[in-house]
Design a protein around this nucleic acid. Structure first.
Ligand SMILES: [Zn+2]
Ligand SMILES: [Zn+2]
Ligand SMILES: [Zn+2]
Ligand SMILES: [Zn+2]
Ligand SMILES: [Zn+2]
Ligand SMILES: [Zn+2]
Length: 597
DNA sequence: GAGTTTGAAACT
DNA sequence: CAGTTTCAAACTC
């Protein structure tokens, strides 16, 4: 019964959304916001760059991959245990996973059903509508129809790898984007309004041909240091200046007889200052693509000083105000929406959490591929309530994630990333995705997004062991310790060695079993006969392995080089202890499972 | 396209 | 506040 009710409700929601979207589209058309021509830049290959740069496919230093899915077992931020025990844990977590899967499947079945219902109950879906809840293909179909009917879209492909959400169509107000027309760029929703402002100025004062807007993104990136300081959304590395006229590809069907705009010139490429792009003077797109990783030092200029209070520069394209109060006073027609063909794929958040990129960018979903979306005009109250809640929790929530540092003039992540496995060399890392080297606030492990390309690229690649290849042998195990080993060992074997019981008590958040495990590990280590006499070398060796070694230590270690085998032995001991513990833990968990009703 | 990995956001 | 869970994007195959 519940499920049926849910179905009905969701079905209603879908229909509502659809209606609302259609209305919205009508509004947009009536207000003439969507121009007759929109230019879409689409790299077409979001992951192009990493593929082109072999050195970028790197592997984390942490060899222990067997624990990857069981981080919940970690007893302390500094100690992750690993061994066969996860096999058991697999069962536990897979139970949970299966539940999730079931739920998801159910949901998706519902989704499908709803789609069918929607299709059957609305036989004449307006071609101009972008309806949430409609399947991807359907959605694209509709969009294509859009293009055919009253607009010509061009996709610029292959120019550069760009993060997906930035492949947004530019909404340009103006009849046919000719120099004689006053052309207004309304942005793409994810774009810093200051950029559109700047560009509009340039267009309409410098008599620049609007088609030169095709390198718009690169220009914008050059202006902004490759990111959007307003919403924190990350803009990819820009095109190299004066290179690579992006290939213009018409998105419209072949029937379209409107020729694509000419290849762009780069009217403001001179604004690219510093950064690696200036050094990559290679004029060929291919070489620039293959040679320059996304996280090149962003070309930062001081043009971002105008980034505040410019949310409303574009008449109708009003960004929702932070406080819902003032929002109610001004009409929001149309409400800023995610441009078509882009957007999120949220399934569980209703697009009302920061998980949703649209929501996080203060945009309403539009043409997204989300399911159960409430981030739309029809639910505007809910949207604002959600925003208020989030702001209450964290007033900075919608602030830019990157800010320009006073001294260095470089943009840095305000909160910093916390990457553990990507070495900040994949787009999982927000810093890397923004093309910005990690900064002081980053608490990443094994960070290689330092801005020094040589280091970043010349990494000895250690391919990860595939699951079936992972052996629970000593060599396959590493302990992802995040602080100097000495600081962990010292309390146990150091001069002022604390009573073990006291140490365990410090792990207050752990349950007894976990505390016991730690106790066991530490006591085993402590009891090892060679530990006491070689503790210095042990610390040094462990620390070195983990990259914590100081210069002084390096010197010392060099002298004690011949003692290294002892340290190895120690590690072996440590690992053996782990094994013992985990097999015990495994039994413990087995018992728990068996006795679970 | 399905499945996996990842780290931010959310939750407790 | 730290540890854990949830989430959607990035990534892999
Ligand atoms: Zn969403
Ligand atoms: Zn969306
Ligand atoms: Zn949505
Ligand atoms: Zn990072
Ligand atoms: Zn970082
Ligand atoms: Zn980093």
């Amino acid at each position: 019964m519940e499920g049926i009710d849910q179905h009905m409700q969701q079905q209603q929601e879908q229909l509502q959304q659809q209606l609302q979207q259609q209305q919205q589209q009508l509004d947009i058309e009536q207000h003439g916001v969507v121009g007759d021509e929109s230019i879409i830049m689409d790299s077409g290959q979001p992951h192009l760059l990493p593929q082109l740069i072999p050195d970028l496919t790197v592997q984390t230093n942490i060899v222990d991959t067997s624990m990857e899915q069981h981080d919940d077992l970690s007893l302390d931020s500094s100690i992750n245990m690993s061994s066969e025990a996860p096999m058991i844990l697999d069962q536990l977590s897979s139970n949970r996973y299966n539940l999730d899967q079931q739920q998801q499947q159910q949901q998706q079945q519902q989704h499908q059903m709803i789609n069918n219902i929607v299709k059957s109950t609305t036989p004449s879906v307006n071609n101009n509508s972008n309806s949430n809840g409609i399947s991807h293909h359907q959605q694209q179909h509709n969009n294509n129809n859009n293009n055919n009917i009253n607009s010509t879209s061009y996709t610029i492909r292959g120019a550069h790898a760009t993060p997906s959400l930035n492949n947004l169509p530019l909404i340009i107000k103006g009849k046919d984007a000719t120099p004689s027309t006053t052309t207004t760029i309304l942005g793409n929703g994810f774009m810093n309004p200051s950029i559109t402002s700047s560009l509009n100025q340039m267009i309409n004062t410098q008599n620049t041909t609007p088609t030169t807007l095709s390198p718009y993104y690169s220009s914008a990136q050059q202006l902004t240091g490759q990111m959007n300081p307003t919403n924190g959304f990350v803009v990819p590395s820009a095109l190299p200046p004066s290179t690579s006229s992006p290939v213009l590809t018409s998105v419209s069907t072949p029937s379209s007889n409107i020729p694509p705009p000419p290849p762009p010139s780069l009217p403001i490429s001179t604004s690219t200052v510093g950064g690696k792009r200036t050094s990559s003077t290679t004029p060929s797109p291919s070489s620039s693509r293959s040679g320059t990783p996304p996280p090149s030092s962003p070309a930062l200029t001081s043009t971002t000083s105008t980034t505040t209070n410019n949310n409303n520069i574009n008449n109708n394209n009003t960004v929702l105000n932070s406080d819902g109060a003032s929002q109610q006073q001004q009409p929001i027609i149309p409400t800023p929406v995610v441009p078509p063909r882009k957007g999120c794929h949220c399934k569980n958040s209703k697009c009302l959490k920061l998980y949703c990129e649209c929501f996080a960018n203060k945009l309403l979903c539009n043409g997204c591929h989300c399911f159960g979306c409430h981030n739309n005009d029809a639910n505007i109250e809910v949207v604002q309530r959600s925003r208020s809640n989030i702001l209450e929790r964290n007033p900075e929530a919608f602030n830019p994630k990157f800010k320009q540092k006073e001294e260095t003039k470089q943009h840095k992540h305000t909160k910093g990333c916390h990457c553990r496995k990507s070495e900040c060399l994949k787009k999982y890392c927000e810093c890397f995705q923004a093309g910005i080297p990690c900064g002081e606030h980053c608490k990443c492990i094994d960070c290689r997004n330092t801005g020094e390309d040589i280091k970043e690229r010349s990494k000895p690649k250690e391919q990860p062991l595939k699951k079936e290849e992972r052996k629970p042998t000593a060599t396959a195990i590493a302990i992802p310790i995040t602080k100097p080993a000495s600081s962990i060992i010292a309390p146990v074997i150091g001069d002022g060695a604390t009573n073990l019981t006291d140490i365990i008590k410090s792990y207050t958040s752990l349950d007894k079993m976990a505390q016991y495990c730690i106790y066991d590990i530490l006591s085993t280590v402590k009891d090892h006969p060679e530990v006491m006499q070689t503790k210095q070398q042990i610390s040094l060796q462990c620390d070195e392995d983990l990259g914590f070694q100081t210069e002084q230590q390096q010197n010392n270690n060099h002298e004690n080089n011949n003692n290294n085998h002892i340290a190895d032995e120690f590690k072996e001991t440590f690992i053996q202890a782990e094994f013992k513990l985990l097999s015990r833990l495994s039994n413990f968990l087995k018992e728990m499972i068996d006795h679970t009703p």
